[in-house]
Amino acid sequence: MLRFLIWKDIVVRYKQTVVGIAWIVIQPFVEMLVFTLVFHHFVGITSTDLPYPVFVYIGILVWTYFTAAVHSGAVSLVTARQLLHRMSFPRLYIPFSSIVSKLVDAVFSFAVLCTLLLWFDVPPSITIVWIIPLMMYLAVFAFGISLWLSVLHALYHDVGFIVPYALRILMFLTPVMYPITLVSERWQWLSMMNPVAATIEISRAAIAGTPIPFTMLIVSSWVVLFTLIGGVALFQKLESRFIDVM
């Protein structure tokens, strides 16, 4: 059943847009061009180990997946209410399938990343394979957050308005367009705790072949763990309640 839910999300997504896959590829690519122009050429942010366009594109790839996943995960229960009202099945499937289906977009964006690496003549380090477990790691975090948000969204519709806004603010707090080394010593701990920041920074290091900042992974995985456990607990506690009010 889970497989079919994921399949549905994917097929529907690509059917609705005329340009389909092209759209998924163009979006982060254009963002990369704009970010390079603004933050590299205008503001003067530089990256150390990778050309700035590649550097920023990795950030965009990870971030785009994260927002898309959290966004669809948050509204997933309300979107699937028809199904939820008709059949009894593990309701966790709903946010889970929306998180997983968004990974497909990330695969296409990754293809673009490979093209960029060739274009800028960056010999990818073998550690590039790290990106796969890293995306899984991020998906788990996105799932944890979605559990919180989807339940809250079912109970309070305000959440639907807050989520995009909160995500936009979070984007500036995450080293998408700047390297984490730019964050002052005093605030480093905050970035360390951010699982999205960890995913981005480690992906960059893995592609550049520089030492991987494992501390970030360890610190932020506690955040992921607590988000997930809390999310599952909340979901199960309110499960019988939200179904009646949706």
Partner: peptide
């Protein structure tokens, strides 16, 4: 227990008849 309530289980308006049959079956 199986239900037959209102419109089909998880049917999606953008998908065609054939796809929806497969989808509903999968959900079941």
């Amino acid at each position: 227990v199986g239900t037959l309530i209102g419109t089909g289980l998880g049917m999606h308006p953008e998908l065609n008849g054939r796809e929806n049959i497969v989808l509903s079956g999968g959900i079941m």
